[in-house]
């Protein structure tokens, strides 16, 4: 089973900074739609092939502070989460504004489950 460390919204950047200074590599982030409860965002860090997973639970329409100023590599995955789930990140170093994959006319979030899709229809 996956061992995760809970994370709160205001710790996100501080934890990223701590790992960056500690020589950890950002493997990736994973956004999961958990229905009514909102989203879960996982931060996967790696050092010497040992992985650490942080779990951030947020309600829908929360703006998450971006860690891309710390880890430049996070910019693609944050833009991707914006495209797929509509999770907004503040201050991404290179913000595609939800159009990394999607065309400008697309308004529905393709990876979200029923609750969001209904609202937009």
């Amino acid at each position: 089973m996956l061992e995760t460390i809970p994370l709160s919204l205001d710790e996100v950047v501080a934890v990223a900074k701590e790992h960056f200074d500690g020589g950890w590599r950002l493997v990736t982030m994973t956004a999961v739609d958990v229905g009514e409860a909102g989203f879960e965002i996982f931060y996967h860090y790696d050092k010497d092939l040992v992985m650490k997973h942080y779990r951030l639970s947020i309600p829908k329409e929360t703006v998450v502070p971006s860690i891309s100023p710390v880890y430049f590599a996070a910019l693609l995955v944050e833009n991707e989460s914006r495209d797929q789930f509509g999770i907004c990140f503040s201050d991404i170093v290179l913000d595609f504004g939800g159009h990394l994959y999607l065309e400008a006319e697309v308004r529905a979030m393709p990876f979200c489950k029923v609750s969001v899709a209904q609202k937009q229809s």
Binding site: F20, L26, A73
Partner: peptide
């Protein structure tokens, strides 16, 4: 070497 690791 540093860049490679930091940029993932």
């Amino acid at each position: 070497k540093e860049q490679a690791y930091q940029l993932g």
